[in-house]
Amino acid sequence: MRKYWILIKTSWLRQLVYRSTVYAYRLGNIVDLLFQVAIWTAVFKTTSSVYGYNYDEMITYVMIGWLINFLTSNYGIEDVVSRNIQYGELNIYLVRPLSYLKSLVAMSLGRISIALFSGIVMQIIFIFIFRHHIVPPAHLIDILLIIIIVFLGYFTRLLLSILFGLIAFWVTDVSGLNSFYGIFVKFLSGGYAPLTLLPIMIYKISLFFPFAYIVFFPTQLYLGKVTTLEGLKGILIEITWLAALYIVIKIVWNRGLKKYEGVGI
């Protein structure tokens, strides 16, 4: 296990090299957040409620939702995986006594460090600025559930990204697909807006998929729009998805690897 710990550390060191890049990303995030606030402020000029959200709840959704989306991000592990496969960088992992999939998890954990710090600081400032519009958590006990859901959400997203990256075993150029994937996940997880804004059928279907539990669900829990009991149910669904994703990744990885090695011709 020690080797994976050092791998986390090395990825972390690598991230330190890119401090200025990380801060530049934060600048983009600020514009992104202010834009969302501006849109909702405009919408609420003519109405006092949108799909059951009042203005303060919506601002809280944007702020808390952004934070959770940020905490569960893995910065394009799908790109790393597809590049490793396409350019044969996978060879370096295959010849060493090291598991590729475990390495990916370790590297991803190492990558979040600096970003995590800067993102949290930025969001604390934002929440402070908008403090008069931020709704306090409905029940304090839910905070504990939210922390668990965010933790599980990180790994759900990570496994989804790895799975998506593995497509590169079969498709030669995946850059377009990867870009679509990023937007798709952010949308279906509620990263752009609450999923309740969707047509009711699509909304209900989305609750069967793992995405909704990444951002939308914990934010609902925060706002008290979902009960604690439902929150526990959500955790169970997420754990089930994690287990399912793990199994699917193992299968896809083994099949992909067989293709990579040229087995069975």
């Binding site: 080797k3 050092i6 791998l7 090395t10 060191l13 060493r96 006594p97």
Partner: peptide, 10 residues
């Protein structure tokens, strides 16, 4: 850094 990592891997 890569050397240190390889030390652990091997």
């Amino acid at each position: 850094e890569s050397f240190i990592l390889n030390k652990e891997i091997y």
